[in-house]
Simulated assay, not measured.
Amino acid sequence: MLRLTGLVLALTVPLAAARAAPASVTMNAITAEGVGAEIGTVTLEDTADGLRLTPNLRSLPAGERGFHVHVNPACGPADNNGKPAAGFAAGGHYDPAGSGKHEGPHGNGHAGDLPALTVAADGTATNPVVAHRLTVKDVAGRALMIHADGDNYADQPQPLGGGGGRIACGVITG
């Protein structure tokens, strides 16, 4: 038995890093002609495990879709090899370390590589994903992009994981 008399012990507990307020991103369908109809929202929230992205989306093709944070806060078309391409105004994947590598959400490459977005047979996506290396503050002022195909998080057999064209986008404010 330990008895302490007349002694005050002060314990210091490190405070968790300040978390930013959650953000809601309006997502729109996109084409080479421009930004189209709203398809829902994605809520971004800092958690102890990283950035949680909770989609509430509709009107998407069923299956796994590539899901990324892109550099520029824009969703319009831009030039891709001499032709307008959907969402190219958003630029490339967010890569603050300049890694130039596409290694997925748990690798050491692009920080903007998110876990795949799963779309149900009815075209809705509601399952949250967590990006362990990101916070709301990191992604504010960037674009959130959904690609036409899945993502294998490698540059083979196709560059940037084979995610294909850009089909939906939203600008992250906050």
Rank of each mutant, 00 (worst) to 15 (best):
S59P: 10
I39T: 00
P55N: 01
I39C: 00
V8F: 13
G36F: 00
T47Q: 00
L11G: 14
R19T: 12
V42W: 03
P73V: 03
D49E: 13
C75L: 04
M27V: 14
G76Y: 04
A32P: 01
V25M: 04
E45C: 11
T41G: 08
A23Q: 14
L9F: 09
G34F: 04
E45D: 13
G66A: 10
A48I: 09
L57D: 01
P77Q: 05
P77F: 04
I39A: 03
V69S: 00
E45P: 12
E45R: 12
A23G: 12
T12R: 14
A21S: 11
A29Q: 13
L60Q: 02
S59W: 10
A74Y: 08
I39N: 03
V13A: 12
G40H: 07
D49N: 13
V8W: 13
N28A: 10
R52Y: 02
S59T: 09
H68S: 14
A29R: 13
A21I: 04
L53C: 09
A10G: 15
R19D: 14
V25A: 06
A48N: 11
A29H: 11
G40F: 08
I30P: 01
R52Q: 12
T54P: 07
G66T: 02
L7W: 08
E64C: 11
T26I: 11
P14V: 01
L53S: 07
G36M: 01
A32H: 03
V42E: 06
N28E: 05
S24T: 15
P73N: 00
G63E: 03
A62C: 05
P61T: 07
N72D: 12
L60F: 02
L9E: 15
V25S: 04
L44G: 06
P61C: 07
A37D: 14
I30D: 08
E45H: 06
G6W: 03
V42R: 01
D79Q: 11
A37N: 13
P22I: 03
I39D: 02
E38G: 14
G6L: 06
V35L: 04
E33G: 15
A18I: 08
V42K: 05
A48H: 00
A20Y: 06
T43H: 09
V25I: 12
R65P: 07
R58W: 05
P61I: 07
G40R: 05
T26W: 07
A37I: 09
R65V: 11
G40N: 06
A29E: 14
V8N: 15
H70I: 05
H70Y: 01
P55S: 02
V25K: 02
R52A: 09
V69H: 03
P61Y: 04
P73D: 10
A10L: 15
A16L: 08
